[in-house]
Every structure is written in C-alpha cells, then in structure tokens.
Amino acid sequence: MRWRFTRNLGIFLFWKAIKMASLLVAISFLSFLLVKQSPIDPIQAYVGADMLNVSPEQRERIEEYWGLNEPIMEQFWSWGSAILSGDLGTSMIYRLPVSEVIGERFINSIALMSTAWVLSGIIGFSMGVLAAMKKDTWIDRIIKWYCYTLASTPTFWMGLLLLIVFAVWLNWFPVGMGVPAGVLAEDVNIMDRIKHLILPALTLSIIGVANIALHTRQKLIEVLSSDYVVFARARGEKGFTLFWRHGLRNIALPAITLQFAAFSELFGGAVLAEQVFSYPGLGQATVEAGLRGDVPLLLGLVLFSAIFVFVGNLIADIIYRVVDPRTRKEQSYAAK
C-alpha cells in the first residue's frame, strides 16, 4: 500500500513541475512583452546621464549590437535561452550580474520575511484560538476588531507609523537601511543587523496576523460546534484536554497550509515595507528596478518571485497530501 502512495505523490510532483515550467514560460513571455511595450528605453537606462554624449550613429550601433532591431520573438528567444543556461544578464543600476544582486538581496529579505512569517503565524494562530475559545466575549470582540481594522490598513502606512513612533520619537531603533550608515561592511555585527530588522519585520507581522487569526478563529469555532466535539464532551472531555485532543488536531493543518499559501502576500508586503524602511531586500530592488528601468533585473525578479510564491503553494499542497490521512487514501474499506 505504501508504494501506491509514493507513486501518487510522484505523479503529483511530476504534474506540478510541468505546471511550474509552463507558468514560468508564460510569465516570462508576458513580462517580456510588457517591458518591450513600456516607455523604458534600454539604452538610455544603460547609459544614464551620459546620454547627451551619445550620437545617433553610436546609438544605432548599440541597438544593432544588442539586437534591439530584431523581431520580438527572436529577442525573446535569445533572452530565454540565456536564462535557461543560467545567465540572467547584468543589472544596469548595480553593474553586477542579476543573479548576484538577487542572491544578496534575497538573504536580506529572507531574514525579514521569515521573521515576519514565523511571528505572524504564531501570534495570529494564538489570537485566533483565543478568540474562538472566548467567542462573543470582549476578548473575541477586540481581536476581531483588530483584525478587521488591520486587514484594511496599507502596509506602508503601518510602516510609517512605526517609524515615526519607535525610530523618530522614541529613538529606540534606527530609521532605516539594513546596516548602520558609514560603517564598513566587515564591522557590521549581528546586533546591528537585528536592530535594523525589527521595525520592518514588526510591520509585516502586525499586518500579517489578521488573515491567519480570522481564519483560525472561524475554523476553530466550526470544529468546536462539530459533532465530534459534542461527542467528546459527552464522553467527559473538557477544557484544555478537549482543545488539545480535538481542536488543535483539526485546525493545525489548515493553518499551516494557509501560512505557506500566503507567500505571495508576504512578498507583496515586503516590497512596501522595505521601501518605507529603505531595507536593502528584494522588495526594494524591485521598486528600484522598475523606477529606473533596469530591465534585466526586473525580469529576473519577476521570475524569482513567481518561483518563490509557487514553492509556497507547492509546500502547502504537499503538506496536505502527506500529513492529512484523508488525502492519503490507503486501505480504505469505505471506498470499496
């Protein structure tokens, strides 16, 4: 029976891989077209302020050298095959290979996003559990009110608020950036990095709890009024034992899945929060690349974020398949 489950998982992963590949091709093509149609002039973006010194003949030669006059499919093809061989091109604003920029930024972002992800997950889940256990009391009302208010609060606004209160007024945290200004890279210690991380991570967490808390509350209320909890009470179970045995067991999986599926919101939130705090992560790089017309970096980031979100969803799917006994479907008598 075991091998059938493994085989099913294999088939599942195979289809997911195909889906991922076709999604990436579609996204690349679409973003390539969009960039091509946009008013960004790649030559101007590359040359920058020196553009005044570039004569029309020189410009023509650069265009020819870069292949800008060729049909669009051909351009897409040469860009695409370069990517397949691992070459994402060179970022125009950082003058570094795109993969290197993304790699370095990702390390900063992953620190920020994983902190926010874990915090919002744990706090949001606990808030949801508390609200559901105390349904219709003032605790529940406060938590609900908090979540509904936060669900409609823009991330950048929350970021600015924290910045004003904790960095400007109270002076507890630095105003922005990933490391102290004017300090050599070798001299930056881990405490400095953590200090710079706290406010943006807090911003992301404060916003992030709403979704998971409301979802957990809803789910637990459902579970607590279910037949199997009524029966558990009929057998004398109550209080924390009841929650632990039947409540937690039945809400943990949906909550974890939801948290993995929320990678897209996490990334979206990071873009805004990093911008507010000038935190040198992927989000800030995305905004920079967009504003300053850094096409290779922008396309690289689009692909990277697509993979990031897709992986989150994939993990959510796999967890459901591997952990939930109902989707494992082995040795079922009922199904026969």
Binding site: Y228, F231, R245
Partner: peptide, 23 residues
C-alpha cells in the same frame, strides 16, 4: 453532569461524523 458523563452515562451517537476525523 460533568462528572458523570462518559463515566456513568454514555452516549452512542448516530453516525461516524461523531468521531474525530483526524484521530
């Protein structure tokens, strides 16, 4: 009632939905 249920008074429910699906 809290002390007696499950100990002196037991319920036999109607259907399988009264069993915890994940236990």
């Amino acid at each position: 009632q809290e002390q007696l249920r499950g100990k002196e008074i037991a319920l036999v429910p109607q259907s399988v939905s009264f069993l915890d699906p994940l236990m």
